[in-house]
Amino acid sequence: MKKNPVGVIGAGSFGAAIANLLAENGDVLLYERNTETRALLSRERKVRGFDLHPNIQMADSLEQIASSCYLIFPAVPSQFFKKMIIDFSPYLRPDHIMIHTTKGLHCEFDIDTADARTIRLKDIKTMSELILQETGIVRVGSIAGPNLALELMDKQPAATVVASRFDEVIREGVEALKSDRFQVYGTRDILGIELTGVLKNYVALAAGAMSGLGYGENARALLITRGMAEMIYIGHALGADKRSFLGMAGIGDLIATCSSPKSRNFSVGYRIAKGEKLADILTSLGEVAEGVRTLKIGKLIVDHTWVSAPLLQTIYKVVFEELPMDRAVKMMMRYPVSNDAEYLNL
């Protein structure tokens, strides 16, 4: 029996990369909301210089995706996710399985004006929580891992994690994605996978900034290791288990994004350290850097919960309050240290 095509929402570089991976195992329907981009894609079939797989067809509407696909991967930045899912909702049914790829959080309040003392944590939602809230879909999953879009497009080997409370969703995700160059792991800890994917963004940004100062591998290793510890504490405050932070989507993704100029978050940090203004960087980048949003939301979370997060606090000052990076490094280095790997006792 011929399988239904798999749907992908969003033809940004990650959406295209995922679509290409899925296309190796079967047909894919790709939807892009911007009509010009959509037309261009159908004509040229190229995303950032890489070819779209011949098994990929462009879809004209969300409705078409819903009626043709059982398995759907949205790859839409967190700030547009809610609108997309609300538009999508009328067509979705309980026999749809949705595995999102977004490494970001949604807030039910305005993150630029919110007061950390009065926010409610339940108003900060992961994408899977948003899907459950806004649609009739129950079988929801998430993927995260060291998956730099351009390397995936370039067909280099990589791995990812599919998370869902349903084994069936993990199974469907694995079957659809796995190939000789793409390993797919599974876990039921969806909250942990979503949070680790989100929180690593600001650590990547800090890594970029360190690199911008010309620091080498020792400093990066220090940053990654302590960055992960901090992520575990913040994740813990939000109810996640530490295990996922130590896996492919946690430390794995952290190493990739903290080492690569190809990572958007990394390059934002790098350019800030080189003295560019945030606003200019964001305009020239064209695509969304989730790290900047994560930093704002992360700051609200740690201020609200009193979690000690010196790295986040300092890098926030660098990005939004023009604290010079060299002074920021001094502040971080002076921070009193505790026992090594103490987070394992959480």
Binding site: S89, R93, P94, D95, I97, T135, G136
Partner: peptide
Amino acid sequence: LGQKINVKKYFITNGELNDD
């Protein structure tokens, strides 16, 4: 959300009613 639901769909994967 007030959307009318066909309960059978919860038991369907890839278009087929299955056990899990």
